[in-house]
Design a protein around this nucleic acid. Structure first.
Lengths: 185, 185
DNA sequence: TCCATCTATATGCACATACATATACGTATC
DNA sequence: GATACGTATATGTATGTGCATATAGATGGA
């Protein structure tokens, strides 16, 4: 389970409440990790019990009080260890590929339509990432950007490369499927 | 949940027992879907209760009796429907990218080492797929191959394209990280 | 005044899934 | 005779996870 370590990483940049962590996940790591609000609070409770976090209750006048979490030394250490720990590589798990694999059970035109839909979804995902990147420094200017920020940009690069490759692969797949349709229909 | 539909797809090609389905998953769709043996039996029970499958108990002399599952009309129909149904597109979920995103908390050399490890894993995955493909028809001969089989090859193509793209992206990432290391260390 | 919305935290619940374990038959090996 | 292995099916259980819901203070608009 990685969520606690995501939270450690975010809290290393600055102390936050669960509510703020939820927003931070949505704003900055959504392109490779999403989670439910309820999981965040559950994770925070466990992390506090494990001594990774210290809670500070902040009384607010203009909105409900909040519990701001701070990294402890143990938490900082847990993050540093995790950042060096190779994760077990998860095998591909793509249910939609089964719709291709077993596609011969329905007319080719229908599977083509399906894949075109998936292509559209990927194109939209890529557009969202490109829009995000347009508001950030270009590759040439990166050397002058804080180190922390350079790492963050690398994950955005990965997301875009993934989407572009996916588009190209889907296009190739669609071409092959059109050949199948020609021969057999 | 997709496992029941995976089983429908496999059983459409021929009736099998749970034990044989487990082997079929390992032999032919492992490159995009894996599962535990226990889930297969649980899924089969549910699918039978839902009327998608019919059981035939086969008495064997040389090994324990087996329960061979056959598709019913309802099962065949459920497969056909699923094959046309767009799956909700799952957002990227790559915990290792968080190790990059938060990488500034440890020396760059350590993150480089980590990514090199991941690169090795991807290269091994690609090698396994290439070995598998070497025993199958090349692209030029595909037109003369059964339609069912052509679809199966497309999923292998996808797996290889994914791995190749992943390798290229990781290499680019490693180059960027070496630049970071030069500037800041 | 009522209602919606934002801030803020928390629990209930269902589902998917993996790991471990249990049972049991037949064959081959030591 | 004991042990290991392949075949074959099944349950127990823990964990990860998302959706729904509950509670509640403050603000702003209809």
């Amino acid at each position: 389970m990685s969520l606690p370590h995501m939270l450690l990483g975010l809290l290393e940049e600055g102390s936050m409440s669960g509510y703020e962590l939820n927003k931070a996940i949505h704003d900055s790591i959504r392109h490779f990790w999403t989670t439910d609000q309820s999981q965040i609070y559950r994770a925070l409770h466990k992390m506090e019990a494990d001594g990774w976090l210290r809670v500070e209750t902040v009384i607010q006048a203009d909105s409900p009080n909040k519990k701001v979490y701070h990294l402890t030394e143990a938490g900082r250490e847990a993050l540093a260890v995790w950042l060096r720990t190779p994760l077990v590589n998860q095998p591909l798990r793509e249910a939609w590929l089964a719709q291709i694999f077993f596609g011969s059970a329905i007319p080719t035109a229908e599977t083509i339509r399906l894949v075109e839909g998936y292509r559209k979804g990927v194109a939209e995902g890529l557009a969202a990432l490109e829009e995000l990147q347009a508001r950030l420094p270009a590759a040439g200017e990166r050397a002058h950007v804080p180190r922390r920020y350079q790492y963050q940009l690398l994950t955005l690069d990965y997301g875009m490369a993934y989407h572009r490759s996916m588009l190209a692969t889907l296009d190739a797949m669609l071409e092959q499927m059109k050949l199948i349709a020609e021969v057999t229909e």
